[in-house]
Simulated scan of single mutants.
Amino acid sequence: MIRALAFLVISILSPNGFGGVLCTATSRKDVAVSWKWEFMNASFPIMFGQVCHSYTNGSTQEDQLLVYAGYHQSGPSNDLYRYDFPKGQLYGVIQHGVPGGSIPFGRGGAASILNPSKRTMMVFGGSQSPAEALDDTWELDIGTFTWTEYTAGAGQGPSRRYASSTVYVPEMDCALLFAGSFWKERLYYNDLWCYSFSTHKWTARVPSLGSSPAPRFGHTAVYYDGYMYIYGGGGNSDVDFTDVWAFSIGKHEWGEVLSQPPPGRAWMRSVLIDAHWVVVGGARNSTDNIEVWRWPISPSAALGSWQQVDMAGVELVGRESHCLLNHRNGSAVYMLGGYSYERKGSLAEFVRFFY
């Protein structure tokens, strides 16, 4: 699978919209935080490209972790696992289709988001190999672990792709999906789609004015305070991007965000921690890294710089296409799996750091 890197040149988002304020601060070590990696006592399958979400069990109110799909050494998987945080136990989950229905094919690199109020997990697309891409949409009821497929008509949903980014927009009850790739056909996208959890339909979101980010894949995204932010990734002919963009939900437009960034990367993962965008790992120049960077994404801290966190604790190898999530109640970030160039294969490591 192609891996591209992006040396980012970011522009700042002003409190009143997209501004052109150039940040002259330089990237530096972050001495304000002290985070430490530690291994979790759990054995997960060796894989990469899976999706992970945390949620609360409806009956016991205990915190759980869902891990779905991904690439085994033997091929794409459609396995579903549940990790019980209080018990520290991993369980295989028996999945069901609705009466007369089925469950999704095995895949990796799918787009996925969890709707906490409706207690459903949406999965779109992904690939069964670099030569194949999918365009199916599924929802999983996380109470009964029952899948329902929602089929879009021709042109009424995103085309076949993998390595897209997805965020949940609560005020729209919608999953925003951006970009992705179908590498076999040399197709790279920069379109934006909204999946409604109420109607189970896709709607194209065409920006009202201005330019849009270049087509890309393997980037990362977060949603914060009315904006979808995207970072990094690769594109056609291994083009290296030097941009970070934000999509305004209210103004329905894209704008660049300028600052002094970390070195570019693709296939990284990111989370939000206390109004900071935290990016972990990724690949550049066919080399993985395990760097941790954070940026004050809040408009009130718009002139803040990207800072590299000097992580303590256990030593980890670089990785890409891993899982990363901010656990709701534990004040901790969890990381699972991924692919390692150094080890020439997938990882089963389950680690965390508290913040």
Rank of each mutant, 00 (worst) to 15 (best):
R3H: 15
L8E: 07
V9F: 04
I10E: 13
I10Y: 13
S11Y: 09
I12R: 08
V21N: 15
T24V: 14
A25G: 15
W37L: 08
E38Q: 11
Q50T: 15
Q50G: 05
Q64K: 06
V67S: 02
N78S: 15
L90R: 09
G92R: 15
V98C: 07
G101W: 09
L114Y: 14
P116Y: 10
G126P: 07
S127H: 08
W138L: 05
R161Q: 09
V167E: 04
V169Y: 04
D173T: 11
C174R: 02
L176F: 05
L176P: 07
W193N: 00
C194H: 08
Y195I: 03
Y195W: 10
A204V: 13
L209S: 15
R216P: 01
G218C: 04
Y223C: 05
Y227N: 05
G232L: 00
G235W: 01
N236Q: 15
D240N: 12
F241E: 01
F247G: 05
W254Y: 01
G255Q: 06
R265W: 06
R265I: 12
R269T: 11
V271A: 01
A283E: 13
I290H: 03
W295H: 03
D310Y: 03
D310W: 05
R328P: 10
R328V: 10
G330N: 06
L336Y: 09
Y341M: 00
F350S: 11
F353W: 05
